[in-house]
Write a protein that binds this DNA or RNA. Sequence first.
DNA 1: TAAATTCCTGACTAATTTAGTCAGGAATTA
DNA 2: TAATTCCTGACTAAATTAGTCAGGAATTTA
Lengths: 157, 157
Amino acid sequence: MRLSTKGRYAVTAMMDIALHNDVGPVTLADISQCQGISLSYLEQLFAKLRKGGLVEGVRGPGGGYRLARPASEISVADIIQSVDEKLDMTKCGGRGNCSRGETCLTHQLWFELSCNLYRFLSGIKLDQYVNRPEINELVKKQDRQYGRFINRPQAMA
Amino acid sequence: MRLSTKGRYAVTAMMDIALHNDVGPVTLADISQCQGISLSYLEQLFAKLRKGGLVEGVRGPGGGYRLARPASEISVADIIQSVDEKLDMTKCGGRGNCSRGETCLTHQLWFELSCNLYRFLSGIKLDQYVNRPEINELVKKQDRQYGRFINRPQAMA
DNA sequence: TAAATTCCTGACTAATTTAGTCAGGAATTA
DNA sequence: TAATTCCTGACTAAATTAGTCAGGAATTTA
């Protein structure tokens, strides 16, 4: 069982944006450099995040992406599902017609697993991480290292 | 996030064996036909399950596979991990050196997710399902449909 | 208004993983 | 000795993931 980098990247990028939400839009170029993700690939992911209503793009100089709603209303499950990762572990999409029309021997197991997963991930909102001191430390360190937001006073607060 | 058919097949096959544990060894040919899994592929999976100490093979006519320990001591996590599926969702293997030696922004999140997953799946043992009436119904139906164990009286009990 | 910046799109390619095939040998039973 | 079943390793096909590339559209600032 694995989480592809697609979902991983998406959550990381969203976290980056959430952590700078008070500073202003964050460019994909910044995220690319700072989090080590290919820019073109990020663009593909953000097309989906936009369609999913999680972020909005701001074009032109000084633009970038910002959250489309408060960080407290964006869960990790929302993000992962937006980029097409499914949290459903049944092979039948929960319909129970997995084995020649009947449910398969393990249907119930995967169904319960999916519920567990969904409950867990939809309970985690971005703001929970934004408020953790150790994560804030990490971000400030990154920002200094890459000289991000160097001309925006709030960022240095 | 997805569970590959590798893990899914492995658990299904193990469930099949557990459900016939009182009848005797179950052949891969039977599992293949009944659960719709390619025989050669099953053989690959069972090589791993054997190495993992979950099943033992019995060669020769009347042979097959049986559980290497009681169904109450085999968890779904055991099975999935035996066939190389990882339950670790961090990309650093839990070591925390994900982003140029430091932990990445999302390390903690994936770590907590992994713990949750592992706790859930290692809490589910095969015998819990063997004892569910609806699953027993399903198996008996399958057995009749494919004429399995037709010459072994216990199976029809 | 021109230049710079950034989002935005679609088509393409490379790499990896998953799923499955094939050929044949080894142990056991009847 | 013949049938059955496990067991092994090498190979192939298909799917998915990850990433590239080329270029256009909107916006801001000079």
